[in-house]
Amino acid sequence: MQILLNGELREVKPQTSIAELLDQLQLDNRYLAVELNQQLVPRQEHASARLAEDDRLEVVTLVGGG
């Protein structure tokens, strides 16, 4: 199935959890926050939150800014 990950289409297996996806992306979740369909998903829920077709996922981090 396809999801929209940070604005780009991405193929993921059905029922993939957010934690599994971050793992596949080799991302350290200490530095990240995740939003699913414009709702924040706290890190303690990453393992239980499952992705569905056409989900829009945002994975953000901190960058320099004023």
Partner: peptide
């Protein structure tokens, strides 16, 4: 210090993180 929140760049995984 102020910081901004932006999309994680998923392509260049070796890019340094501000943190």
């Amino acid at each position: 210090i102020t910081v901004a929140i932006r999309r994680e760049r998923l392509i260049d995984a070796d890019g340094n993180n501000l943190l």
